[in-house]
Computed example of a mutant assay.
Amino acid sequence: MKMQYGRMPYRAAPYDTARPAWNVSFFGRAAAERSNTMMIGLTGPSGAGKSTVAALFGAVGFRIIDCDGLVHELDRDALYLEKIRETFGEEYVLDGILNRKKLASLVFSDERELARLNRLIAPFIYRIVIKRIGAAKREGGDTVLDAPLLFEYGLESVCDATVGVVTDRKTALRRLSVRDGKSEEELLARLSAQHDESFFIARCDFIIRNGGSREALCLAFAEVLKSLEKRRNS
């Protein structure tokens, strides 16, 4: 059965903003003592608060592999840049530098172009992620794969469980406006080019609804941790 957290009202407990609202040392110690490590796929649309949830995983001892960061690393990959030039045109790569703003303007206004870009990026990201996962397994400990395009890249296949973070569009727009400082028109175009929450609910093992307070998010996250532990030990 699909597990969703963060929807029910609750009475908020006092919250210390310097740390999550549960015993970090307990979860961190437990993670260090476990031998059967887990690979968790974390995904969700822009503005849902996925990075915040990734930080919560990090606070309790999970290693984080940031796929967005890996995409930026590709900006220095000559083969990747050549593929961009061949696929979208010379004007998108000038003097060996990717014009990210121009490319973003194209793909967020045309679903077909976005699909072309995702297909182009997928094999590059997959190879890098597999190497990072191998290194993580050698070092030991649980790992979170923070990937907005987890399913598009086929990375759910290397995960023991998947967690989706979702919120309503109004909340997402407000968060993105504060974070990115872009116009509402630009942000709506970006959100419209992405999957809505039904996509993630249908595919993820666990769903965190992040539309309320930080305390509510922390409680929902703690419930997901408990469910992941049950899955590990089952």
Results as ranks from 00 to 15, higher is better:
Lys2Thr: 10
Met3Glu: 15
Met3Val: 15
Gly6Tyr: 06
Met8Pro: 01
Pro9Gly: 05
Ala12Val: 08
Pro14Glu: 08
Thr17Phe: 14
Pro20Leu: 08
Ala21Met: 12
Trp22Asn: 11
Trp22Ser: 10
Val24Trp: 01
Val24Pro: 10
Phe27Ser: 04
Gly28Thr: 03
Arg29Leu: 10
Glu33Asn: 11
Ser35Lys: 15
Ser35Phe: 11
Met38Tyr: 00
Gly41Glu: 07
Leu42Glu: 01
Gly44Asp: 10
Gly44Arg: 01
Pro45Tyr: 03
Pro45His: 14
Gly49His: 01
Gly49Ser: 09
Gly49Arg: 02
Lys50Asp: 06
Lys50Cys: 07
Lys50Ile: 07
Thr52Asp: 09
Ala55Cys: 11
Ala55Leu: 07
Leu56Asp: 05
Phe57Gln: 02
Gly58Met: 07
Ala59Cys: 07
Ala59Trp: 07
Phe62Lys: 00
Arg63Ser: 12
Leu70Ile: 14
His72Pro: 07
Leu74Thr: 11
Arg76Val: 13
Arg76Asp: 15
Ala78Glu: 15
Tyr80Glu: 04
Ile84Pro: 13
Arg85Lys: 14
Thr87Asn: 09
Thr87Val: 06
Thr87Met: 10
Gly89Val: 08
Glu90Cys: 08
Glu91Thr: 13
Glu91Ala: 15
Tyr92Cys: 04
Gly96Val: 12
Ile97Asp: 08
Ile97Cys: 13
Leu98Phe: 06
Lys101Val: 13
Ala104Ile: 03
Ala115Asn: 09
Ala115Cys: 01
Arg116Pro: 04
Leu120Gly: 06
Arg127Lys: 14
Arg127Val: 04
Arg127Ser: 15
Ile128Ser: 05
Ile128Cys: 04
Ile130Val: 13
Lys131Gly: 09
Lys131His: 09
Lys131Ser: 13
Ile133Glu: 14
Ile133Asp: 12
Ala135Met: 09
Ala136Arg: 01
Ala136Met: 05
Lys137Cys: 05
Arg138Asp: 05
Arg138Phe: 07
Gly141Asp: 05
Asp142Gln: 03
Val144Glu: 01
Leu145Cys: 00
Pro148Glu: 00
Pro148Gly: 12
Leu150Ile: 02
Phe151Gln: 02
Tyr153Glu: 02
Gly154Asn: 02
Gly154His: 02
Leu155Val: 03
Asp160Tyr: 02
Thr162Ser: 06
Thr162Ala: 03
Thr162Cys: 03
Gly164Tyr: 01
Gly164Met: 04
Thr167Leu: 00
Thr167Tyr: 01
Thr167Ser: 15
Thr167Lys: 04
Asp168Ala: 07
Arg169His: 11
Thr171His: 08
Ala172Glu: 06
Leu173Asn: 11
Arg174Leu: 13
Leu176Val: 05
Glu184Thr: 10
Glu186Asn: 07
Ala189Trp: 00
Ala189Met: 10
His195Glu: 06
Ser198Gln: 09
Phe199Val: 01
Phe200Leu: 12
Arg203Trp: 02
Arg203Gly: 06
Cys204Met: 03
Ile208Phe: 04
Ile208Pro: 05
Arg209Lys: 13
Gly211Gln: 05
Gly211Asp: 09
Gly212Asn: 11
Gly212Ser: 13
Ser213Ile: 02
Arg214Asp: 12
Glu215Phe: 12
Ala216Trp: 10
Ala216Ser: 14
Ala216Met: 08
Phe221Trp: 05
Val224Cys: 04
Val224Pro: 07
Leu228Thr: 00
Glu229Leu: 10
Glu229Lys: 06
Arg232Lys: 08
Arg232Tyr: 00
Ser234Thr: 10
Ser234His: 15
